[in-house]
Nucleic acid binder design. Structure first.
Lengths: 249, 249
DNA sequence: TCAACTTTGTGCGCGCGTTCACAAGTCCCT
DNA sequence: AGGGACTTGTGAACGCGCGCACAAAGTTGA
C-alpha cells in the first residue's frame, strides 16, 4: 500500500486530539466525507451512525470508532451534524489547505487524470503537466500547457508542488520519482505498474488497475468453483517441475 | 475495499493446496507476479526470497509466508524457479483462464482504460465498451465499437462478460451496476466515486483517485508538522460548534 | 563422505483492527 | 417533571496478519 509511512507517530504533547489516528481509519475518512457531502447536498442536517455507515458501506460500530479518533463530534440520542462533521473530517485530512499537484506523463491516463473533475473538488489543484514526448510539449490539456520533463525541478519549485502523480510507463517511473523527491516532493501517487524506491520520509501510494483486476479474477474463480459445488477442477495442467534438483554434478 | 467477500471459504475437501489464502496475501500476489515477470524478461532463472522481496517492496519473511500458502514451490539453499513460480501464481490467481471485461462509460477514464495495455497483458480481454452518450455510440475506441448502454444485457450474454468496469459518473454507477449484476456479472471494478450496493456473492472493488490523494494529503500534513517540530498549529480555526445543544426548549 | 554455507518453510508471540455489548447522555412525549 | 426511546462513545474480547527466529533441507567444496 505504502512504502514508507511516518504514521502513528505519537507527536508528544500536541494540543489537538488528533494524535495517532490508525491508518485504516484514515483510509476510510475520505469515504465518510464523500457520503457526508452527498447528504449535505440533499439538505440532510443530521445523520446517525447507522445511516452514515450504510451510506459509506461499513458497519456502524466501525464508523463510530473511527470518528471517535477525531474527537466527540456527535450528540447522543441525535447523531452527527452533517456540516460540522464535514468540516472536522476535512480539517483532519488537511483539506482546508490547497494542495498543488503535478502530473507527470500525459498519455491516455495522464490525460484522463488532468480532466478528472474529482481532483479540483476537494482542495487539490493540478498546477502542472509534464511529459517527455516532444509532440505533446506545448499542447493544451485541460487548460494547462504541457511542459517538458526537463523543467521538472523548476516547475516543482516555481509552482510549489506538494504531490507528484506519476502516470508514465513503468520504465520511466523510477527516474521521474527520484527527480521529484530530489526536488522536494514528499508525496507521490504512482499509477505506473512498478514499485518505487523512495527514501525514508517520502510517502508513495500505488494505484494499479491490473492488480485490481487480478484480485477480482481470483475471487471470481474461487467463487465460481464454490457456486458450482467445486466439481470441476480445471486450470490444473501440471506443467512438470523444472529441473532444479538432480542437475549434472 | 470490497463490499462483499466470499473469501476464506474453507472449501471442504478440495484437491488443491490452495484453500484459505488470506486476503492480504492475495492482494500481494499480483505484485510478486509482476516482479517475477520482469525478472523472467531479464533472463533470471532463479531468485531468492530476499531478492524477490526487495523487487516487490516487501519483507522476505512475509514473501515466504505468502508463497507458502500456495505450496512448497521453492528449493532450500537455492530459491525459487522464476518461470515455475510465475506459472503457479498465475494459476492461483486464475490467470490461465481468459477473463472477458466490459467497460461501461467511455469518458476520459473509460477511454484511458480501453487503451490501457496492462489489461490485455495478463489474460484480460476488453470485449465491449458501452456508453449512454449518443455521440459516442458507434465510435471506434481502441479497436472496439462503442455500443449503447441499452444493449448491456445482450452484450453481457453474447460476449460472456465476467467482469464489469464501471467508469461512469457517480449518478449512473448504481443503476449500471444493478443491471450488470442482474445480467449475471459477479465481479465489478468501480471507478465511480460512490459506494455500490450489491447482493451477497457479488464482489466489488473500488478505485478512487480522489481518496488516494486525500490519504496522501493527510500524511503530508502530518509529516510536515513533525518535520517542522510541531511548532505551528495551523488549521485550528475553531468554527463554533453548531447549536445542537441548548436550543429553545 | 562430511562439514560448512545457503535458503526455504513455519511455529510463535505480538500488535493492530474489528466487533460486540453496554453505560452514559440527549430528546420526546405525556 | 419524569419515564421511555434513541444514539453515541468506549471497554473488552477476538481474530488476523506481521515479523522474528530457527529447524529442516539442499548445495557446494574439500
Amino acid at each position: 500500500m505504502s512504502s514508507s509511512r511516518p504514521t502513528r507517530l505519537a507527536g508528544p504533547g500536541r494540543p489537538t486530539r488528533a494524535v495517532g489516528i490508525p491508518d485504516a481509519t484514515v483510509a476510510r475518512l475520505p469515504v465518510y466525507l464523500r457520503a457526508l457531502t452527498t447528504l449535505a447536498e440533499d439538505g440532510v442536517a443530521t445523520v446517525s451512525s447507522e445511516e452514515l455507515a450504510a451510506a459509506a458501506g461499513v458497519g456502524s460500530a466501525k464508523l463510530r470508532k473511527d470518528l471517535s479518533h477525531l474527537g466527540s463530534y456527535g450528540t447522543r440520542g441525535v447523531g452527527y451534524d452533517v456540516e460540522y462533521l464535514v468540516y472536522q473530517i476535512s480539517r483532519e485530512l488537511g483539506l482546508t489547505q490547497d494542495w498543488r499537484v503535478a502530473i507527470i506523463g500525459v498519455g491516455n491516463l495522464g490525460h484522463a487524470l488532468a480532466n478528472y473533475g474529482g481532483f479540483a473538488s476537494r482542495g487539490f489543484t493540478v498546477v502542472a503537466l509534464l511529459d517527455a514526448d516532444r509532440r505533446l510539449i506545448g499542447e493544451d490539456v485541460a487548460g494547462l500547457r504541457v511542459r517538458s520533463i526537463d523543467d521538472l525541478e523548476e516547475v516543482v519549485r516555481a509552482e510549489g508542488v506538494h504531490i507528484g502523480v506519476v502516470a508514465t510507463p513503468a520504465s520511466a517511473a523510477q527516474p521521474v520519482c527520484d527527480r521529484l523527491v530530489a526536488a522536494g516532493v514528499t508525496s507521490v501517487l504512482n499509477f505506473a505498474p512498478c514499485v518505487l524506491d523512495v527514501p525514508e520520509g517520502v510517502m508513495v501510494r500505488k494505484v494499479d488497475l491490473s492488480t485490481e483486476l487480478q484480485i477480482l479474477a481470483f475471487h471470481e474463480q474461487r467463487g465460481a468453483v464454490t457456486q458450482l459445488g467445486d466439481a470441476l477442477d480445471v486450470t490444473s495442467q501440471p506443467l512438470a517441475r523444472p529441473g532444479l534438483t538432480g542437475l549434472a554434478r
